[in-house]
């Protein structure tokens, strides 16, 4: 084997390494990952209660914070463990328990207004993140159960504490009663 052949091989390899390195470096700097699509995909995994327990004003802002690594994936009690698992899988991050500082998971719930006690102050209306409360000044208010996410944001503004949270109605009409015989 002669030295010339070895030299050519080394040169070819070195040229390739330098060219590809420069190309990749340029790509990393100039072609940004599509941040919006990542936010969308994270947002799709969040439960959309818009409750703000993660201390962001809604699910999408939290998704944006996760995408930009500003927030951890353990801040969503309504989504529970299932959401943390789905996020960890999507983002290839380490699975971790929910941070209790942001609340603990509860069974699905919906708000219910005791219409006899409601004074029609209309303060809960702007608090609802999904416009699920119907009412107007000096008229009785009521919650559209089907659209209520159970976020609890209507509780603090109510001056007469006439809103309470009740277990959400069953979403499925199927029953898995075991076979009899």
């Amino acid at each position: 084997m002669n030295a010339g052949a070895i030299l050519i091989a080394v040169l070819v390899a070195a040229t390739l390494a330098v060219t590809l390195g420069v190309a990749l470096g340029w790509a990393a700097a100039r072609i940004e990952p599509n941040a919006d699509s990542l936010v969308e995909r994270i947002d799709a995994l969040l439960p959309q209660t818009q409750c703000g327990q993660c201390r962001y004003p809604g699910c999408r802002p939290y998704a944006a914070a996760i995408a930009s690594s500003a927030a951890e994936i353990d801040r969503c009690p309504p989504g529970g463990e299932a959401t943390v698992r789905a996020l960890a899988e999507l983002l290839d991050r380490a699975l971790r328990p929910l941070d209790p500082e942001f609340g603990v998971p509860k069974p699905a719930q919906v708000a219910w207004i005791d219409e006899a006690r409601c004074i029609g102050c209309a303060r809960c209306l702007p608090a609802c993140p999904v416009d699920a409360i119907v009412g107007t000044s000096r008229q009785m208010h009521t919650v559209i159960t089907r659209q209520c996410t159970g976020c609890e944001l209507c509780l603090p503004p109510c001056p007469v504490d006439c809103i309470e949270l009740r277990p959400a109605p069953a979403v499925s009409r199927r029953y898995s009663q075991p076979r009899a015989a």
Binding site: Q48, T49, Q50, P129, R179
Partner: peptide, 30 residues
Amino acid sequence: DRFRDARRRLQEAAAMAQKAADARERHGLR
């Protein structure tokens, strides 16, 4: 029995996904 139970869970998951999509839309509109 397991399949009946699984069908119920699938249906529940679909209902939850639909509810989340509705909530997302209503929150966006708001």
